[in-house]
């Protein structure tokens, strides 16, 4: 197990290196920060001075090495727009994203898994068909448009919940959190619900098909022939088996949620890292985009690693050695 983890971390380091190279070269090729930052009244000399001050006059490999060296010491540079260290910007906004994503995940798992197991066990029940159609509809509504719909209904027409912003925050561990105040929770509810719909649909479908698949296995037939109580059949035999794919996919979904939070944050003006990314793309704020991509890669790599380890712990047939 230990050697497996070490090997995986090694692979991840290579992946991160390749990613940083791709991102850096890609950004270099297409966007010119000087053009963004320079005012209309800049002379050619002014532009050159600006380029030099940003270190853009050096050859590309040197720029990359300097960048890599800085990144390894935790320095992602200064934002062109905010004129502040990029890492500060990102960490300032990370709690907003995390709390929203976590709330959505909890909602999604708490509703999706029981619903999926129930419909998997009751394949012929009319409610199962209704659930199945509802998940297809939920799955078919693009997340951003669903967000608009939620705003239209709950903010514009019913005026129950606010449509944008974070509301009151409470400082904790050096960052502001919304989930500790009523106003903050009211603000968080719509964006989190928007994300949760997708999770509920995905979890329900996956759990249902997992349940159906396991119920057809020989060992379930044999377990039924043993005459053990039904709750045991479901809680031990079924659950232990479908838990394996559910954990894997829930882990990977966490990544997908962070990705979709970009969309949700934009619509609800939720000041998280997703909105920061898009704002930075619009303003060609290169250091922020690069830092976001590298950090998100780190995050995904870490999630994948944790999922693989959990997988090994849950499935006795897998032993990484």
């Amino acid at each position: 197990m230990a050697s497996f983890i070490i090997r995986r971390i090694g692979q991840s380091a290579v992946l991160l290196f390749i990613m940083s190279l791709l991102v850096f070269v890609g950004m270099y090729m297409v966007s010119d920060p000087v053009a963004v930052l320079a005012g209309d009244d800049f002379t050619a000399a002014d532009r050159e001075a600006l380029a030099r001050s940003l270190g853009l006059d050096r050859p590309l490999p040197l720029q990359y090495l300097a960048f890599l060296g800085n990144v390894l010491t935790g320095d992602f540079g200064q934002s062109y727009v905010y004129n502040r260290p990029v890492l500060d910007l990102i960490f300032e906004r990370l709690p907003a994203t995390l709390e929203m994503v976590c709330l959505a995940m909890v909602l999604g798992v708490a509703i999706g898994i029981p619903l999926g197991i129930w419909s998997g066990l009751n394949r012929r029940h009319p409610a199962t068909r209704a659930v199945s159609f509802a998940t297809t509809v939920g799955y078919s509504i693009p997340n951003f448009w669903q967000a608009l719909l939620l705003i239209l209904v709950f903010s514009v027409w019913l005026r129950w919940l606010p449509a944008s912003g974070r509301g009151d925050t409470v400082p904790l561990l050096g960052a502001g959190w919304s989930f500790l105040t009523i106003d903050g929770l009211r603000h968080m509810l719509l964006p989190a619900a928007n994300l949760a719909v997708a999770i509920v649909c995905m979890q329900t479908r996956l759990t249902r098909s997992g349940t159906e698949e396991v119920m057809f296995q020989d060992y379930m037939m044999f377990a039924r022939s043993k005459g053990i109580p039904r709750w045991r059949l479901v809680n031990r035999h079924l659950l232990r088996n479908i838990l394996i794919p559910i954990v894997t996919i829930t882990g990977l979904e966490l990544g997908a949620l962070i990705a979709f939070s970009t969309v949700t944050e934009t619509v609800f003006s939720w000041p998280g890292i997703g909105k920061l990314l898009l704002d930075s793309i619009y303003r060609s704020d290169r250091p922020v985009v690069v830092a976001y991509m590298i950090l998100i890669t780190v995050m995904f790599v870490a999630i994948n690693l944790v999922v693989d380890i959990l997988y090994a712990l849950l499935d006795p047939r897998i032993r990484y050695s």
Binding site: L15, T262, L277, L278, F300
Partner: peptide
């Protein structure tokens, strides 16, 4: 490398 990112984020 490609599938470790959700499609929309990759595209963005």
């Amino acid at each position: 490398l490609t599938v470790s990112f959700p499609g929309v984020l990759l595209a963005i």
